[in-house]
Amino acid sequence: MNKSIGPRVCDIMVCAMARLLQDEDRVFHGVSSQMPMVAMALARHIHAPNLVHLNIPGGVNPASIKKPSYSSAGSELLATGEAYFPLEYVFDLSMRGGLDVAFLGGVQFDVAGNVNASVIGDYHKPKVRLPGGAGSAVLIPTAKRAIIWRTKHDKRTFVEKVDFVTTRGNLWKIVTNLCVFEFKNGSLYLDSIHPTSSLEEVAANTGFQLRYDEIRYTPLPTEREISMLRQIDPFDYRAKEM
């Protein structure tokens, strides 16, 4: 596909994430999470009207993201929410098995599904010290389905073995700007390739040998999805992470 005239990668990613969500799911996102926030709103408008949106400020199902200045961890999430469910309750909910989906980030991932959000290089003398596990160390192991999203897919990000294991084991999907990975049978498998990319491009930008059962492509956004995205995200927050 000619990338100059094809669909935007941010739209493909958001629609792919939205389709992973089910009606009545309890879904959490953290800071700097514009794409998951828009994906959750899209899912609620398209196929999951009873999805429960949880976030750091604690506003359940915030009303709208149609503002020229809007944060994925801002006070407006609480001010326009239907109810108050603070962050410490989210951790408790996940530990009790009641959190269906957690959208979380990371900096380095390996074929065994380990996530590094702590350091690059040796832990005691790191090249880069990262923010650390924070919620990921608790929510990835305990949420029913943990989804990572990453807008930069390269060999420094997807490695044979992470420099430090911040958390491990309970990933479900990783959505990147090139593809979707699924964690199964103890390894990351290539689930689908975005139509804006190719198997060769994914392989060239992944630091471990790709595993896959078959070559599949991520479905393009539908006209309805694109139309709805323009309505619920008129300021294009979904593109700000690209």
Rank of each mutant, 00 (worst) to 15 (best):
F183Y: 15
L104N: 04
E201V: 05
R216G: 02
N55R: 02
K161N: 08
S198P: 15
F103H: 09
E76I: 06
G59H: 11
M40Y: 03
C10T: 15
F85P: 05
R168M: 01
Q209T: 14
C179F: 12
S33R: 06
S94A: 15
G135V: 01
E82L: 10
E214V: 05
G74I: 09
V175F: 13
L178P: 03
I147Q: 06
L99E: 05
D110S: 07
Q108T: 01
R150L: 13
S136I: 05
I148A: 02
W172Q: 08
D110F: 03
D23V: 03
D191G: 03
V101Q: 03
L130G: 01
L210Q: 11
P68K: 07
N170W: 02
P86M: 02
A204Q: 14
L21E: 00
F85S: 04
S197Q: 07
R238L: 15
R230Y: 15
W149H: 11
Y89E: 14
R211W: 00
P62I: 01
K125W: 01
P126T: 07
M40V: 10
A146E: 02
S71G: 06
L20N: 04
P49E: 07
E182P: 04
C179T: 14
G105Y: 12
L54N: 08
P221I: 09
C10S: 15
R129K: 14
M17N: 09
D236F: 11
A239H: 09
A48L: 08
R129A: 13
L104E: 15
C10W: 15
A102C: 13
G105W: 11
A102V: 11
R156C: 04
S69Y: 15
P57T: 11
Q22I: 00
P7L: 13
H45P: 00
G59N: 08
